[in-house]
Amino acid sequence: MFYRLSGIHHTRYESARALWPVTADRRIILGLLLLALAAPFLLSDLYLTSYMLPWLIWTAAALSLTLLMGIAGQLHFGFAAVMAIGAYTSIHLTRAGVPFELALLGAGLMAALIGCLFGAAALRVKGLYLVMATLAMQYLVEWTIINVPAISGGAQATLSTPDVTFLFVPLQSDGALYYTALLWTVVVTLLIMNIKRSSFGRALVAVRDKDFAASVIGVNPLKYKLLAFFASSFLGGVTGAVLAFCYYQAVTPEQFGFNVSIQLVAMVLVGGLGSVIGAYLGAGFVLLLPIVLTNLLAFVAQFDLIPISFNLLSHIPLMVYGALIIGVILFEPLGLAKIYDNIRKYFLVWPFRHTQS
């Protein structure tokens, strides 16, 4: 009875276009935001820095890729390279004395410019051919970072982040690092949600569905494809900088390899293409589920109920994790966000199930 459309009367365009027109949705969002703000006081430092912090940052990365893949429909298998550009740019700028706030902006602009260079391939090719262009970006950026000592210090070098302040708060304590990541994730979330409702977002959807049909109705596919790459790469570059300063605090080329790009694509696909809530669910599924499975199996193994070798025990979480990904895709191809949406729609009419269309 707490989740109803009854009593909601849209008498103004402002209320009809609200992000959360349903009262229950606003209460859920407010509750989750309050829990997120209280997390440093409710969780131990281990859970805060090992679970919540990376989940928020990788959610922001998945949202950045969602703008490009889910809304604009442009495939990108080199997004880790975009984040690497942002991470290394921000470190070098802050070492040169640039304030951290401006370094984040510079990281985003550098990633956006380089991302647009490779995104220009989308102007002529699409599908698997575009995938090959983004793969070329991934490997070229990796090679450049490793082989140019001025950027990374060398193939085996580790580049530490300097001590910085953000909005006059030193980024040294776990709480400050967490709230910085939380602020950026909330900003990206609101940005993506509003882009989806704007004329820019509708133009991207038109290009995604049928680019030549979009050009017929006055939407320039070339312009909006480049804008999609620019915006997505900008957000990815800033997210890479936040990842470097708030989580890694020291970066190496291996942290932004091709496997990271695949994980980001998996977050977007498993969560649900074009879905904001799907980015949160997909990041949690890909990032946290293997850890939970490993801890669960380690707990069960203490009782010696089933004789399992240590080698097999270390591979079981990966096997179960892969099977769960296949199961999600088979059971609901639209991702975890669609499962959530089905549950939400069920409660909108519960217990009058026959009213569902």
Rank of each mutant, 00 (worst) to 15 (best):
L226P: 05
W143E: 14
N311Q: 13
F285V: 08
S90G: 13
A214C: 02
L235C: 08
L33I: 11
S50H: 11
N259V: 12
L5D: 13
F230T: 10
R95D: 14
G153S: 05
R353E: 15
G284D: 05
L289H: 01
L34Y: 07
L167A: 12
R124D: 01
S314D: 13
L330V: 11
L222M: 15
L43I: 03
Q302P: 06
N342E: 15
L204F: 03
T239Y: 02
L171S: 02
V268L: 04
F230Q: 10
E254D: 14
A39G: 09
V242C: 13
A112R: 00
N220Q: 10
R17D: 01
I29R: 07
F77E: 01
G237A: 09
I71V: 11
P290M: 05
F212T: 15
R12Q: 12
L48G: 04
T189Q: 06
G73C: 03
L33E: 07
A279K: 02
L65F: 08
S90I: 06
S232L: 06
T89M: 11
F100D: 01
G31M: 07
A176Y: 05
Q356A: 14
S199Y: 06
L297H: 00
P162I: 05
R202G: 02
I316S: 09
V270G: 06
L102Y: 09
V292E: 12
L296G: 13
S232Y: 02
V148L: 14
L56R: 06
S199L: 02
F118V: 04
Y88E: 01
H354T: 15
A87D: 05
K223F: 14
I326C: 08
Y346T: 14
V82G: 03
A266K: 04
K210H: 15
A241V: 09
S357E: 15
D25C: 10
L243Q: 12
V286N: 01
F166N: 07
L67Y: 03
H315S: 11
G106C: 01
G78D: 00
L63I: 07
F310T: 15
A112F: 00
L34T: 08
L105N: 10
K338M: 12
I146T: 11
D163I: 13
V260L: 13
A176Q: 00
K196L: 12
A38R: 03
I195T: 00
K345G: 09
G278E: 10
A213R: 10
A301T: 09
S261W: 01
R208Q: 08
Q249F: 08
H76S: 13
G240C: 09
F310P: 14
Q302A: 08
L113F: 09
V82A: 02
T89V: 10
V238W: 04
V216I: 13
A84W: 02
Q156P: 06
L105G: 11
E254F: 13
K126A: 11
K196E: 15
I325L: 09
L182T: 01
M132I: 15
G70Y: 02
G70C: 05
E254I: 10
V207K: 00
F347Y: 10
H354I: 14
H76L: 11
F77R: 00
Y51W: 09
Q74R: 02
E101T: 02
